[in-house]
Structure formats: structure tokens, C-alpha cells
Simulated scan of single mutants.
Amino acid sequence: MRALAELVMRGQKHAAVVAVVAALLPLLYWISAAAVALVTLRRGPSDGAGLLVWAILPAGVWTYSGDPTPLVVIAGTYVLAILLRQTVSWPRVLMLALPLGALMALLLETALSGVIGQMVEMTQQLLEQSTTSAEADKLLTTETLNAILVGGLSAVHTAMILLSLILARSWQSGLYNPGGFQQEFHQMRLPATYTALLLAALVLGSQVGLEIWRWLPLVLLPWIICGIALIHGSVAKRDLGRSWLVGFYLAVVFFGPYMILLLVAAAVLDSFVDFRSRMPVKN
């Protein structure tokens, strides 16, 4: 990965080749997004925009063929890279990612309406096979299923944008400030004000009748990322070794929903308590 980052920063032509080829190849658009973000972080929005134009060309082809994901992820990563360069604040980036994800939810619902409809029908058929039709109607209506799928898609796309930005930041740190990103990530947490706003939005949204299932995965995303940062920062501060991180990610794989809830709860508490500042350093 370091060699790829060096190639991107070697010059605009090399960066354009990486961005175009990665955007053309299936499932490698995140590399193109990270390349655009790296140039933006290091050289500014103007140079980043020049590379963005090259990356959008193949991404536009994918969009025309029915898959807007590369275009959405590359463009979204560029926007957040500008914010990170200007503010050098991960909490602000995580919070701005939420309205960006909400906008993507509306775009994806329109662009992928046919695919989402097919997924809703397949899910309903599976529910009807496992339960009676009356029970299935009570469990999940068509509208609820549509909201869940759209919310999940928007959260996944937003997560891909944030991960591409994190990759770009780690590339920048590796090339120009070794160890800098690790320190940033280990200290990443949402301030209490931001957490209070998110909690209030969830409570008020459920009270006024908003589709909570549509927005819940997206709202939880900043806490999930900060929860992962809390684990990494705590392991590093206590010098527990990589085996603890391996165990953590295995637990995420095998106990996914439960671990997600634990990460969210830990991140919420960390916003008010700041566990890492109270944690003693291992001698």
C-alpha cells in the first residue's frame, strides 16, 4: 500500500492512472477514492478536484450501467477530505458524514429503486416461508423493509467513504508524518455535545414519527468507528499486544450485532467519561 501511495504522489499523471484504473476495476473503487483524498489532503482541493475529474470518468460508466456506488464513494470521500484538511477534526468529519449519508440514501433510493424492490420481495418471500403470512405482515411491512434496506445501503456507503478517507490519511501519515495517524486514531472520540445531539435526534425522531429504521444504521456509524478507535487506543496505551486486537475482530465476525451494540455503548460512555485519559499507562 505504501508503494501505491508513493506512486500517487509522484505526479498528477501517475495519480490519474491509479484513480482511473482502480475506478474501472470491480470492487476497487475505494482505492481510487483514497487516491483522490490523499492528493486533496496533501496538495489541496484544487489538485484533488483535478484528480476527481479523472476518477469520475470510469465511475460514471459504472453509474450508467446501474451501479452508482463508485461515483458516490469517490465524490463523498473528496468532500470529507476537504473538511478534514481544513479542520483537522475527525469528530467534525464523522458528524458531516451523517447528512452526506442521508443525501446518499435519497439518491440510492432513486437510482436503485428496482434493485431495492427486488430485495424487498425476496425478503418477504423468505419471511413467509419461515412464518405464517399474518405473522410476516406483523413483523415487517413492505414500507419498513424498504426503509431498513435503504438505511443499510446508505450506512454501508458512508462507511466506505470514511474507510477510504482513513486509508488516505494513513497513507499521508506514512509518507510525511510516520505515526501521526495512529495517534489521531487512538484518540478519536465524539465530544459529549455531539453525542447528546445524536441521542436527542434519535429520541425526537422516534417521537415525531420519522422512519427510525431508515436512519438508525447511519446515526450509529460515528459511535461504531469511535468504539473501534477506543479499543485500539486502549490496547496501545496498556501495551496489550496485537493478540487482543485479533481477538476483538474475531469477536466482531462471530458475534457481530452484539459487538456492535457494545461498541456503540462504549463510545457513548467514552464521550462523557473519556476512558483513555483516565487509563494508566503500563509501566
Rank of each mutant, 00 (worst) to 15 (best):
C226H: 06
D270H: 05
Y176P: 07
T110Y: 14
Q125T: 12
R92H: 10
N177S: 13
M160G: 03
V273I: 14
T87V: 07
W223I: 02
V115L: 13
L28R: 08
E143D: 13
R238Y: 07
P58E: 12
P45T: 05
I74E: 01
G44T: 06
A134I: 15
L38I: 10
D274H: 06
A105I: 02
W213M: 11
T63G: 09
M279W: 12
F185D: 02
G50E: 04
A81Q: 02
L38G: 00
Y64K: 12
V21F: 09
Y29K: 13
P178S: 08
A134M: 14
E121Y: 06
L112Q: 12
L245M: 12
A59C: 09
M259R: 15
T158L: 04
G50H: 04
G152T: 07
A200V: 11
M119G: 08
V115W: 10
A159L: 15
S234H: 10
G50A: 11
G151W: 01
L100N: 03
V268E: 03
M259V: 15
M259Q: 15
G233F: 00
L80S: 04
K13G: 14
I231H: 02
A55T: 04
L84E: 02
L198H: 10
A19S: 13
H232I: 07
P178H: 05
S277F: 14
A168M: 01
W223D: 01
T195K: 00
G227P: 04
L106R: 12
P257D: 09
V53Q: 14
S46K: 13
V115M: 12
V20L: 15
R276V: 09
L245H: 04
E184P: 00
F272T: 07
P217F: 08
L250R: 10
W215G: 04
L108E: 06
L163V: 11
L71C: 08
V36P: 00
S130W: 07
V273H: 07
A75E: 09
A196T: 09
R42V: 14
A236Y: 06
S271L: 05
S271V: 08
V268M: 07
P280S: 14
R189W: 05
R189S: 02
G48A: 03
L27T: 10
L52G: 02
L83M: 15
F185W: 15
D239S: 15
L250K: 10
R214Y: 11
L162C: 06
A159G: 12
A192Q: 09
L199Y: 11
L80W: 00
A97W: 01
I212Q: 06
I260P: 02
A15F: 05
Q129S: 13
P217D: 06
V88A: 12
P26V: 10
V8T: 04
I161N: 00
P257G: 14
L153F: 14
L269I: 10
V235G: 05
C226N: 05
Q12F: 13
I74R: 00
P58Y: 03
L106M: 10
A5N: 03
F248V: 04
L51C: 01
P217S: 09
L230M: 13
T40S: 01
G151Y: 00
